[in-house]
Amino acid sequence: MKHDEFIRRVSERAHVSAEQADTLGRAVLQTLAERITGGEADDLAAQLPPELQEPLRRPRKAPADPFGLDEFLRRVGERAGVDGELALRGTRAVLHTLRDTLPHKEFEDMVSQLPTEYRELLRVDHDEFVQKVARRAHVSVDQAQTLTRAVLQALAERISGGAAQDLAAQLPPELREPLQRPRDAHAEPIGLEEMLSRVGEGAGVDEDLARRAFRAVLLTVRDAVPRKEFEHVLGQLPKEVAKLL
C-alpha cells in the first residue's frame, strides 16, 4: 500500500484531514515502536512505505517498553497535539490500516507483543466488516450483507456448535445470529463444494459468486478475530478451504 493510500484510510477512519492523519500516523507508529521490540519494529518498518518507516527506527536489540494502553494513548496525544478521544480514534485507525497493509503473519507477530487490552482497538464493527466483504467479493454493500449471512450460516453448520459460538462472540453483534447453534451440536462433515452450494442457495447467487463471497467472508473473519480463534475454525474445515484462502 502506498503512503497516500495509507494516510487516506487513516483519515477516513479517524474522521480527520489528511494532514492530521499523517501527524497521527507518525505519532502512533513512534509509540508503537517503543511498545514492541526493536527487531519487530524493524520488521514492521520494512513492510511499510518509505515515508512511514522513520518513526519505527530503533536499535534492533532494543527491548519493548511494557506500558499499558492509557500510557500509549497519552504519548500519542502528546506527540500529535490532540486530546485523548482523538488519540484513541487515531490509534485505532492506524492499527486497522496496518492490518489492511501487512501480511497476516507479520501483523499477528506485532499484535502478539501487545497486552490483551490493545485487542479491543482491533475489533471490526459491522459496517467495516461488510464493506471489506464487498470490496473483496466485488459486490455492493447490500449484497455483501446477504452473502455474509449465507456464508456464516454454512460455516456454522460445518463446525462444532462450541466453535461456532466462540467465533460469534468475536464478531460484531449484528453478525452473530447466523452462527448460533447449541454448544454441543456436532459438525456436519460436508465438503467445500456442498458448502458453496448452500451459500449460493442461501444468497440466491451462482457458484462463481458463492465462491468469491466464501473467500471474502473468511478473509474478513481472519482480520476480525484473534489468530488462534481463526486457526481453530480453519482446522475444522475441509483442507480445500485453506487452498481457497
Score class of each variant (00 low, 15 high):
185 A>G: 09
132 K>E: 12
183 R>F: 07
102 L>Q: 12
119 R>D: 14
138 H>I: 06
164 A>K: 02
103 P>F: 14
180 Q>Y: 06
195 M>S: 14
191 G>F: 09
101 T>I: 02
175 L>W: 01
106 E>H: 11
187 A>F: 01
161 G>D: 07
105 K>H: 11
164 A>L: 01
117 E>I: 14
188 E>S: 14
198 R>C: 06
126 H>C: 11
154 A>G: 06
141 V>I: 10
145 Q>M: 10
116 T>K: 15
180 Q>W: 04
151 V>Q: 07
168 A>E: 05
140 S>K: 02
134 A>S: 09
97 T>P: 06
138 H>P: 00
155 L>E: 03
183 R>W: 07
112 S>H: 12
170 Q>T: 07
140 S>D: 00
165 Q>D: 06
102 L>N: 10
121 L>E: 11
192 L>I: 14
184 D>N: 14
177 E>A: 15
119 R>E: 15
164 A>V: 01
122 L>A: 06
157 E>M: 00
200 G>A: 10
179 L>P: 02
170 Q>F: 02
191 G>E: 03
193 E>F: 05
162 G>T: 08
115 P>H: 15
139 V>F: 07
122 L>C: 04
118 Y>R: 02
110 M>A: 15
140 S>Y: 00
157 E>C: 00
160 S>R: 09
135 R>C: 03
164 A>E: 04
167 L>K: 09
179 L>V: 10
120 E>G: 14
157 E>P: 00
174 E>V: 06
163 A>K: 06
176 R>L: 07
195 M>L: 15
174 E>F: 04
127 D>E: 13
97 T>E: 11
184 D>F: 11
164 A>R: 04
132 K>V: 05
196 L>C: 12
143 Q>M: 14
161 G>L: 08
147 L>Q: 05
99 R>P: 02
180 Q>V: 10
111 V>D: 06
130 V>Y: 04
138 H>G: 09
157 E>Q: 08
144 A>I: 07
185 A>W: 05
170 Q>A: 11
180 Q>F: 01
134 A>T: 01
101 T>Q: 09
178 P>C: 05
184 D>W: 11
139 V>G: 10
200 G>W: 05
194 E>V: 14
167 L>C: 05
97 T>H: 12
155 L>C: 04
126 H>S: 13
100 D>C: 03
163 A>M: 00
125 D>W: 13
128 E>V: 08
111 V>K: 13
140 S>M: 00
200 G>K: 12
116 T>H: 13
169 A>G: 07
155 L>I: 04
155 L>G: 01
136 R>Y: 12
187 A>Y: 02
115 P>N: 15
114 L>Y: 02
176 R>P: 05
201 E>A: 15
127 D>F: 03
135 R>Y: 03
134 A>W: 00
196 L>R: 10
127 D>Q: 14
126 H>G: 11
142 D>V: 05
178 P>I: 01
143 Q>Y: 08
122 L>V: 04
